[in-house]
Design a protein around this nucleic acid. Structure first.
Length: 624
DNA sequence: GCCGTTTTCGGCCCGACTGTTTTCAGTCG
């Protein structure tokens, strides 16, 4: 059996190999598009493989690709992929990940210089023979050398949290530049993806030069990659990154820091400068995603318009007849139908405002009204938090006060259970004492409900880490997997189902145990898990820490479609962890979660009644 | 290789920037 992620990767590789072989680019991009479509699919392909009609309903999947999916699910391999692999040196594919190198250039290196891997590329750079190749001048080679150094230090994608830090600092900085009317971050960061390739900053100004100058001289900039009138790119060091208060090189009257020595990790930040009247169209354009934008532009064409980052423009009669204008509309003085704000552009396209998190071409263009998704201010309870009793840094009282400051009506104290020795998990006797301490804290901290709970380990076989009589003493039970996170899917499914079916469990905590970019975690049968969670009235957690974001967006969407309840929790260990809530909310929104299905949004009485209700059912069962 | 309120065949989104070029190809988002 192959997972969705594996099949998506297979199709993406097919597309890359086709590119390297110089095959029809439309066939290649069809494979790439199907790959992206499958990545964001909520249903498991392995369960659809017997239903060809269902596969054909997937966006971008036609007869040929459906057959490849069926082949992958039934045999575990795709013949076409293996045939393509046989034609291309395996070491060539990583060259495509070097920034600035695309399929045409890599193919040229291969065909004309015999380069078959990264070492080969380094070799022709070292001996200078690269300079004899087409379009390879001194500057181009210097750029490639820089990109190779970057690739060596692992300049890949970045988790959402650190990327957001860099972006917020840069937005603050740009807002203080003279002439700047508006500044926001856009791109995948605004859509709230769990990882970020680069940070996109959009600025509206009547003084583009000043904006670009402030941008390229910002603190933390270690390289200027491009500096045009409307677009610029830099790399910014992570860690000591762009604090808006720090003086820039320009302000310090020092030389530009382009040559500043820097070896640590960095992130690419792109600046786009537009006039204020184009703000909305530009924000839409640079928020993406690619597939959302392509669909929007196609929709515009169908309606007799053309859409670009400067606005939505009517097609000329010449264009409607299939001709092309010599200049794009904004350069020949055409008046846009809509441009200044996003809502107006969507409206002119016959659409409601689409929240950024939904702009993935996952069905949002069929919406008739803007859905009321979960918002940060809707969250009124934190149901997963640790104290000094296990591995947190706050006392019960401090935790409760911090939660009350945030405007929450409820905080759950859920320290680790005994198996989590490394996290100072509580033995049963300590938990009984801890429950008493929670009860005592209720007397000293008023104005918030403090629940006595536990984050109880789900052991490898699905059993829980405390006996039922102890769990029954708790107000709330969050059951989470912490160890044995490399189990095969079938074992993991049985394990998590057993936990969900346990009558004393309220919330399934970070269900897969994944760590963003670090650990894939469990791959259970999500459809089975959602069905069980719904029928046993267990909420599935969206762990808000940017290193977890577990459940992830597409799984949240699947859970929402299955009718499940969800919890958004910060897994608080440190007071700053409350600030991660925004990432959990954004992930929830990407899964189309509405407040009525998120237990943290419920009023206190409804939430508390729901928590008690599970205990009531238990008593009925026992006496019945 | 997919897709259809102009198309079941013939299309396939749009613009900026760079470097190596005398008018454009390649890459990126």
């Amino acid at each position: 059996m192959r997972t969705n992620a594996q099949i998506a990767a297979d199709l993406a590789t097919i597309a890359q190999l086709m590119d390297l072989l110089g095959e029809d680019s439309f066939r290649s991009s069809a494979n790439a598009r199907a790959s992206r479509s499958i990545e964001s699919l909520t249903a498991e392909l392995s369960t659809l493989a017997g239903d060809r009609a269902a596969l054909l309903k997937i966006e971008g999947v036609g007869p040929k690709i459906a057959d490849k999916i069926i082949e992958a699910c039934t045999t575990g391999r795709i013949g076409e992929l293996e045939e393509l692999r046989a034609k291309v040196p395996p070491g060539l594919l990583p060259l495509l990940n070097v920034p600035g190198l695309g399929p045409k250039t890599v193919r040229m290196f291969w065909q004309q210089a015999g380069v078959t891997d990264l070492a080969g590329l380094r070799r022709i750079i070292a001996d200078g023979s690269i300079l004899a190749l087409p379009r390879m001048g001194a500057k181009a080679v210097e750029k490639i050398k820089g990109s190779l150094a970057l690739a060596a230090e692992g300049g890949g994608r970045l988790p959402l949290g650190p990327a957001a830090m860099v972006a917020r600092a840069m937005v603050e900085r740009m807002r203080r530049v003279k002439g700047v009317a508006q500044a926001e971050f856009a791109g995948s960061l605004r859509r709230g993806r769990d990882t970020i390739g680069d940070v996109d900053i959009l600025v509206a100004t009547d003084d583009p030069e000043a904006a670009v100058r402030a941008f390229t001289s910002a603190p933390g900039v270690v390289a200027v990659l491009a500096a045009g009138e409307t677009r610029s790119s830099v790399r910014i060091a992570l860690g000591g990154a762009a604090s808006p208060e720090a003086p820039s090189a320009e302000e310090r009257d020092e030389p530009a820091p382009a040559a500043a020595p820097h070896d640590g990790p960095s992130v690419q930040v792109d600046l786009k400068v537009v006039p204020a009247e184009s703000w909305g169209a530009a924000l839409m354009y640079f928020t993406g995603s690619k597939d959302h934008n392509v669909a929007l532009r196609q929709r515009a064409l169908d309606m007799g318009y053309t859409l670009n980052e400067y606005g939505l423009f009517p097609l000329t009669d010449h264009e409607k007849a299939g001709g092309a204008e010599p200049l794009p509309p904004h350069k020949r003085g055409a008046r846009p139908v809509a441009a200044a704000d996003e809502t107006a552009v969507y409206k002119a396209l016959g659409l409601p405002y689409i929240p950024p998190e939904l702009r993935e071409n996952r069905g949002e263009l069929a919406l008739k009204t803007t859905p009321r998704l979960v918002e940060l201010d809707d969250i009124k309870a934190e149901l997963h938090a640790h104290t000094t009793a296990s591995d947190g840094v706050l006392s019960i009282e401090d935790l409760a006060r911090r939660a009350r400051q945030r405007g929450f009506h409820t905080i759950a104290v859920t320290d680790h259970s005994q198996s989590s020795a490394i996290a100072n998990g509580l033995k049963p006797a300590r938990l009984r004492e801890h429950i008493k301490a929670v009860h005592a804290a209720r007397e000293s901290v008023k104005g918030i409900t403090i629940l006595a709970g536990s984050e109880v380990d789900i052991k490898a076989d699905g059993s829980l880490d405390y006996a039922d009589d102890l769990l029954a003493c708790l107000d709330i039970v969050v059951a989470s997997p912490h160890a044995s996170l490399s189990q095969d899917p079938d074992t993991a499914t049985r394990r998590l189902l057993r936990a969900v079916e346990h009558p004393l469990v309220h919330i399934l905590g970070h269900p897969t145990g994944r760590l963003v970019l670090k650990r894939p975690g469990l791959s259970p049968d999500m459809a089975a898990l959602f069905a069980a969670a719904k029928s046993h009235d267990v909420a599935l957690e969206i762990n808000a820490h940017w290193m977890r974001l577990d459940l992830r967006d597409v799984h949240v969407h699947g859970a929402v479609e299955a009718g499940c309840l969800l919890a958004i929790d910060c897994d608080v260990h440190h007071p700053d962890d409350f600030d991660n809530l925004c990432f959990g909310v954004t992930t929830a929104r990407r899964g189309w979660l509405t407040p009525d299905r998120c237990i943290n949004c419920w009023p206190a009485d409804r939430l508390h009644a729901w928590l008690r209700n599970k205990r009531k059912n238990l008593n009925t069962d026992r006496h019945g």
